[in-house]
């Protein structure tokens, strides 16, 4: 019965997320504000002292900011999952005859729509700041598709963690865990200047793989390191997404089924 009701359950679950955004447009505005502010701070303030090989710094930076928008799926998904588990929403849903996978998939798909709505104006701001698509529409669409896939995977990771934590406050505090993933990357600076061990960490960071893949597909300047993911960014990014999904989806469904047990 779960398999049959899955699309209905996913649609209702997605609707819930989208209704929350519709009632609180400020939520969307604030998630939009961060990347736009970063274009200003990193692109113009820090970027004024930055030199990257093969082009302007702002063009180097934009794929990095796109990837951070994708990574930002972790936090709301984690806090939302913990809130639902902590306040009995998960219990109520579990006491109903609904598809658990459907519910969680609906949430993740709704978040994807939110991400698309945030990415579009971010890209426009990037274009105004000098970012360009240089390898044509096909690869560019591929890049955006990859960014959304990464967002999707990050949302599942957040949901799995949030349901495991089960407390909204704790989940909020755990948000700092995403900082190393956003900072130890090639998003802001090339890894070439980092100490060798740090460069290795940065290059194996999934965020870096997505950033480098997007740079390659958009045709933006890049200074890939020597590690395998840096040399094969598209394959590495797809691999990371597949791995994260393979781990996070079953874990999220399992944590949902066990919440509060």
């Amino acid at each position: 019965m779960s398999a049959m009701t899955m699309p209905v359950d996913a649609a209702a679950s997605a609707r819930r997320i989208l209704l929350v955004y519709r009632h609180s447009p400020g939520l969307l505005a604030s998630s939009l504000l961060v990347p736009v502010a970063m274009v200003g701070v990193f692109g113009y303030v820090f970027g004024s002292a930055m030199n990257v090989p093969g082009g302007g710094y702002r063009e180097f930076l934009m794929p990095g900011l796109f990837a951070l928008v994708a990574l930002n799926a972790v936090m709301p998904a984690m806090v939302g999952g913990a809130r639902d588990a902590g306040r009995g929403v998960t219990d109520r849903l579990r006491s109903m005859s609904v598809s658990r996978f459907g519910l969680l998939t609906g949430q993740a798909l709704a978040d994807l729509l939110v991400a698309a709505v945030v990415l579009a104006p971010t890209a426009l701001v990037g274009l105004a700041a000098g970012w360009r698509i240089r390898h044509g529409l096909g690869p560019a669409l591929g890049a955006f598709g990859l960014l959304l896939l990464f967002r999707f995977a990050c949302g599942w990771v957040g949901t799995a963690l949030g349901l495991a934590v089960g407390k909204e406050d704790t989940a909020g505090q755990l948000a700092v865990l995403t900082i190393p993933f956003s900072m130890l990357t090639s998003a802001f600076v090339p890894t070439g200047g980092m100490p060798g061990w740090l460069a290795a960490i940065a290059e194996w960071n999934p965020v870096s793989a997505v950033v480098e893949a997007a740079r390659q597909l958009f045709g933006n300047p890049s200074a890939p390191g020597s590690a395998w993911p840096a040399q094969h960014p598209v394959a590495a990014a797809l691999g990371w997404c597949a791995l994260l999904l393979a781990l996070a989806v079953p874990l999220a469904v399992r944590n949902f089924a066990r919440a509060g047990r």
Binding site: D9, R15, H23, S24, R87, G88, R92
Partner: peptide
């Protein structure tokens, strides 16, 4: 069965009507 637990297990970010309609859909 129906269950009402120790907390008000409702979504705060949407209206009361939307809460009930969504749960109604989840009840198929």
């Amino acid at each position: 069965i129906g269950l009402a637990g120790q907390y008000a297990a409702v979504e705060e970010g949407i209206t009361g009507r939307e809460n009930l309609e969504l749960l109604g859909r989840l009840h198929h």
